[in-house]
């Protein structure tokens, strides 16, 4: 009964709409269907991904399999580019540098970021202002802030060395020692010009830039931990460290893992920082896969070989991302 009357009502409505332009009503009906509308809404994003990500990536893969150089159509050479790279010392150095740079920088950022987040999570005067200020390195355009680092790490005018010398002089005057004449003055390291210091210097700059992201993400995660859990842990007998290990860390682990993996990927593919500070030098001591790929393809013009260099980043990042997704799915099921 109810069905029939509803059907008649619907028939009456569609009959009354039959007078309108049939084309408009067809489009409206189609868009009211969520399955259709969903795909329509996806189109712009899909186009952007095709044009700016999928196409360049496919082109890169194709180039990596050719001997294309600037101004010449390349011909297919199979895996020759990859074989050549694996055989080259500079590539192996860059690959090792990339892994070292990424692992060390990410580890330092994670540890310092956690420490900073725990400090910022406390209430103190101007705590809101401080939280906002911590974000600054993240907001400044990377190339600009890196140029400032270049200046601060300059071989002759480094402000760090100036401070070191000032401290050195200060200590001398405090103890009244006359070693100054014997040792001259402390010169400080040649931050970017000495292969022994250059990697440390770019890691320092990377940590400075990446720390806010860690600190603010960890801080946001910390604020979702219910305070009652700390009360309960305190009554259960947990000390400050225990509370951190047994409550804080497990509670923010999902967020922490996403943050670390994301930062790992971005650091792994870092280019601007190294390009501005050292261009991979001295003696390739700071060459990363990204800067090497740029050098091979843009400076030397070997587009095919450069593409192959860049593609070497894919398998490692792929593994990292698969691990992350697996973990997230596992805790999602729990």
């Amino acid at each position: 009964m109810a069905d029939t009357s509803a059907a008649t009502a619907r028939a009456r409505v569609s009959a009354s709409r039959a007078g309108e332009k049939s084309r408009t009503s067809w489009l409206t009906t189609q868009l009211e269907d969520e399955r259709v509308l969903g795909y329509v809404l996806l189109v712009p994003a899909f186009l952007l991904i095709i044009v700016f990500i999928a196409y360049p990536f496919a082109l890169g893969v194709w180039m990596a399999l050719t001997d294309k150089v600037v101004g010449q159509p390349g011909s297919f050479v199979g895996l020759a580019n990859f074989a050549k790279l694996l055989d080259s010392d500079i590539f192996r150095t860059a690959a090792w540098n990339t892994v070292f740079f990424t692992v060390v920088a990410t580890a330092i950022k994670a540890a310092l970021g956690m420490w900073l987040a725990v400090l910022l999570n406390r209430k103190f005067r101007l705590s809101r202002v401080t939280r906002a200020a911590v974000l600054l390195p993240f907001i400044v355009p990377t190339v600009l802030s890196t140029l400032v680092w270049l200046w601060m790490l300059d071989g002759t005018f480094s402000v760090f060395n100036w401070i070191l010398r000032w401290l050195w002089d200060l200590e001398l005057s405090v103890f009244g020692l006359v070693v100054k004449e014997d040792f001259g003055y402390i010169r400080g390291p040649n931050w970017l010009g000495d292969p022994a210091w250059a990697m440390g210097s770019i890691i320092m700059a990377n940590v400075w830039r990446g720390l806010p992201f860690f600190a603010i993400s960890f801080l946001a995660a910390l604020q979702t931990v219910p305070t009652e859990l700390y009360d309960a842990a305190e009554i259960d007998g947990a000390s400050g460290w225990r509370k951190f290990w047994n409550v804080t860390l497990p509670m923010i682990k999902p967020v922490a893992i996403v943050v670390v993996v994301f930062s790992f990927v971005v650091t792994f593919a870092d280019f601007q920082l190294v390009y501005v500070l050292t261009r991979g030098g001295p003696y390739n001591s700071t060459h990363l896969l990204a800067t090497l790929a740029y050098q091979i393809s843009m400076h030397a013009g070997n587009l095919g070989e450069g593409a192959a260099t860049a593609l070497f980043m894919v398998p490692l990042l792929f593994v990292v991302i698969v691990l992350q997704l697996t973990y997230l799915r596992r805790i999602g099921v729990d």
Binding site: L229, A232, A233, I235, S239, N246, K253
Partner: peptide, 28 residues
């Protein structure tokens, strides 16, 4: 609190979400 020899039951239970029931009960 840990030296007072008291136990407390909270309004929102305050169970540790990453621990099993057994681990929650035995944590202290």
């Amino acid at each position: 609190p840990r030296d007072r020899d008291i136990a407390m039951v909270f309004q929102n239970y305050a169970l540790y979400p990453h621990m099993t029931v057994h681990e929650n009960m035995s944590f202290g």
